[in-house]
Design a protein around this nucleic acid. Structure first.
Lengths: 203, 203
DNA sequence: CATCGAGCGATACAGTGTATCGAAAGATAC
DNA sequence: GTATCTTTCGATACACTGTATCGCTCGATG
């Protein structure tokens, strides 16, 4: 599993193959099946290992949810392949459960029936936000490699398409709106969600 | 692309191979490269085609965002493979842009700098929520196949793990909290988010 | 009618995950 | 100490995957 994570960190998830993991461990490929049931289980183990770093800190439900969200995002920045795997399968490994425990422990004084929807909503938001963020980062890395303004980076295609006048509202927003960076976008969306939760919970 | 969607609808995304698509079209595999650049482009085309059904309806920003979210979820229910692809790469195809246009058009009277964060947050939530929902649905289908209560469905493992006492908060929530169905969970989270947006936008 | 060019597809290559089964090694019984 | 049994191990094989290469075929042009 550690070998697989190293491979994925270096060259992405599609670089993880049982054969490469085996050679990294100086072992014959079939030997891996003595420890894992197949590749899917290996991926699950990788995700669970990543959850070891995802913990909630601070007091109160809001700070717990916020810190858990930021920790998840941080882990995905460190291991971009996590964005490909998060939410893809239910995570019930020990580290994932321990991670959930840290956030639920901080929600002790919240109505028990509200806890699940709250953390489910935050987790859903984080998964989607991180996915989009990593996807955009990869696209920037693939094309451009240096240009900061994605308008120019993703090239003539969008410019041309927006110039057709078929998407007036989209063109207006792209032209007139301030473009926030990834950190701001993530935090604003998270604040939206936490504000909405606060309004319903404390009422 | 239509052939690929049929394959994915029937047997999941991993059943989509260029060879199978080719034989479905009664064509030799290499012939496909006259129309697409590779498999990734085919997947992008599939996603863009799915976006054709994802539109925002109704008046006002809240109803636009809500309907867009529900439409996305509906599309993912009809094409479960969409959950695997959503958010994985930036979507700039014509149908995806047209989909975004319908929601942005309904946000005309919102401060232009607030528009992007609003739709980004909703899209992120939807992607994550749908992913988790489909993942859970698949897990239920794989194990059990009939049991409604996932506590029993995912078997002795969780029961045993929770019984260890290492995750007291988790155990309490699982035992005491009401378990909502997927529809309710999705809508509650979406309402959290829309409420939070409303609080910040109209202020 | 001949030549050329472009579209096409058979073949090939380097991979992938995993099933099978013979060989080796370790543990047990005498 | 030897013989049997059992468990562990790995080489090989299979059915796939996406895609590069390149010779062939066929239609259009001179």
């Amino acid at each position: 599993m550690r070998a697989a994570i190293d491979l994925a960190d270096a060259d992405g998830l599609e670089a993880v193959s049982l054969r490469k993991v085996a050679t990294a461990l100086d072992v014959r490929p079939m030997r891996l099946y003595g420890y894992i049931a197949g590749k899917e289980e290996l991926l699950d183990l990788m995700v669970d290992a990543a959850y070891a770093e995802i913990r909630a800190t601070g007091d109160g439900w809001r700070e717990a949810l916020r810190s858990h969200a930021e920790a998840t995002r941080r882990a995905a920045h460190e291991h971009e392949w996590l964005a490909d795997l998060l939410g893809g399968r239910p995570q019930l490994g020990p580290h994932a459960l321990a991670s959930g425990e840290t956030v639920l422990a901080a929600l002790g004084d919240v109505d028990v029936d509200s806890v699940m929807p709250m953390v489910a909503a935050v987790k859903a938001y984080v998964i989607g936000a991180v996915r989009r963020e990593i996807a955009e980062r990869r696209a920037e890395r693939a094309t451009g490699m240096d240009e900061k303004h994605w308008q120019a980076a993703l090239g003539p295609y969008l410019q041309r398409t927006l110039a057709t006048g078929r998407f007036p509202a989209l063109a207006t927003v792209v032209r007139d709106a301030a473009h926030l960076d990834a950190d701001q976008t993530f935090r604003i969306g998270l604040d939206f969600l936490l504000d909405g939760i606060e309004a319903r919970v404390s009422r």
